[in-house]
Amino acid sequence: MTTYEDFAGREILPLWEGPDPVNVPMIRHWAEAMGDRNPIYRDDAAARATGRPGIVAPASMMQAWTMRGYAATVEGPDAGAAAGARELDALLEKDGYTSVVATDSEFEFHRELVAGDRVSVREVVESISPEKSTALGAGRFVTTVRTYTDQDGEVVAVQRWRLLRFRPKAARAPRPRPAVNRDNAFWFEAAREHRLVIQRCAGCGTLRHPPGPCCPHCGSFDWDAAEASGRGQVYSFVVNHHPRHPAFEYPLIVAVVELDEGTRLVTNLVGVEPGEVEIGMPVVLDWLDADPDLSLPVFRPQSGIAA
C-alpha cells in the first residue's frame, strides 16, 4: 500500500517542454501587464548596452513558458505522462484532502532567458508533511521541486513549490467582508435594515450605483438615497464552480441584476438551478443575513418563473 512517505523523491511530472519558445511578443505583453518598464524587456539596444545579448525575459515569467494552456489542461496529460501526479491526487482525495491552496514559492535563477530558448520542466516531490491543523481545515503540505532546463539540458532555474491540500471544515467559514468606506457605508447600513437603496444626485436626480462621491453627469457632490422597489431582471450571469471558498455553496450563481429603476448591481441568485437562469428573467429581492453585522441583497425568480 502506497503511503505519503513513499512519494518523497518521486517524479510526478516527467520532463515537459513548453509549447512555445521564449519570444519577444510574450515578453512585451507580460511586462506591460505587470507595469514593468525596465528597458531590457522591451528595447534590444538598451538590453545590449547592459552587456546582455539582447532582450531578456523577466525572471517571473519562468513558469509561463511551460504552461500547457487551457485546452491541454482540460484534455489532461497524455496517458502515463503524469501517473505519479494522478496517483498522489487519488491518495489525497481518498483521505478527504479535496481542497487546495498555494502557500509559497521559492525560485533560484541560474541565468536569464533570451528569445529562442526552449524551456522544459520536471517536477519531483520533495516532501509531504504529516497532517497539520490549519484555519482552513486539517491538511498536508505538499512540497515539490521543479527544475527548469533549456534546449541544451542546462538548468536555468529551480523552484520549490508548496501547496496545502486540506479537508474543508464542516462548519461554514465566515463570509468575506465587503470593503466599506465613506462613500458606501450608507448602503450597507440600509442593507442591515433590509432596505435596498440607490444613491441619487441631489443636483440632477440621476441614480448611480456603485456609490461614489461625485455625480458623473453633473459633477455635484450633493446626494441622497432612494429606496428601490426590489424588482428587476437578470442582465448577465455566470455560474462559479472554482476556485471554491468555504463560505459559499456551489455551484454559485453570480449575476448582474438590472433594477427597474435602471441601475445594476452584482448579486447572487437563489432559489433557482443554474440551468434555469436566463438573460432577462424577472427577479425579486430577498435578503441574506450572513451574520449579525452583515445583510446582503440577493435575488430569486419572480413567483411562477422557477421553483
Rank of each mutant, 00 (worst) to 15 (best):
T143P: 03
V121M: 11
F166S: 05
A179N: 14
G137R: 06
G139P: 01
R146C: 01
V158E: 12
D183Q: 12
E131D: 07
V124N: 01
A90F: 08
R177W: 10
L163C: 04
A179Q: 15
A173C: 01
N184D: 04
G153V: 00
P130S: 04
E154A: 14
A179R: 15
F107V: 07
G139T: 05
Y148F: 13
L92P: 00
A135P: 13
R182C: 08
F109S: 10
R160K: 13
T147R: 12
R167A: 11
T134H: 02
P176W: 03
T143S: 00
A138Q: 11
A90G: 12
V121E: 07
T103F: 06
V114Y: 14
R172G: 00
A171Q: 08
V142H: 02
S120L: 05
R165V: 07
A179G: 13
V124G: 03
D152H: 06
D152S: 08
A171V: 13
V101Q: 04
A115R: 12
L91D: 11
P168G: 02
T143Y: 04
A138R: 15
R172N: 02
G116A: 05
E123F: 02
F107T: 05
L92S: 01
E106V: 14
R167T: 07
V142K: 04
E131A: 10
R160V: 12
A135K: 15
D117H: 03
V158Y: 12
A170F: 03
P176T: 06
R162M: 09
R146K: 01
D117R: 01
V142M: 03
K132H: 04
V101C: 05
A157N: 04
V124M: 02
D104A: 12
A135N: 14
L164V: 07
D104P: 09
A171C: 09
E131I: 07
A171L: 10
D150W: 10
E93I: 15
R111K: 07
A170K: 12
S129D: 01
R175Q: 08
D117V: 05
V119F: 09
E108G: 12
V125M: 10
L113V: 03
A102L: 12
Y148S: 07
V114R: 15
P130C: 06
A135D: 14
A179V: 15
S99A: 10
R146I: 00
F166E: 01
P174D: 02
A171G: 08
R177T: 13
V158G: 09
F141T: 06
T98M: 02
K94N: 13
S133I: 14
T147K: 09
T149F: 05
T134N: 00
T134P: 09
V100P: 09
G96C: 06
V121Q: 06
P130I: 03
E126A: 09
G139N: 04
V119T: 07
A173F: 09
V155A: 07
A90V: 03
T144I: 09
A138C: 08
E112K: 12
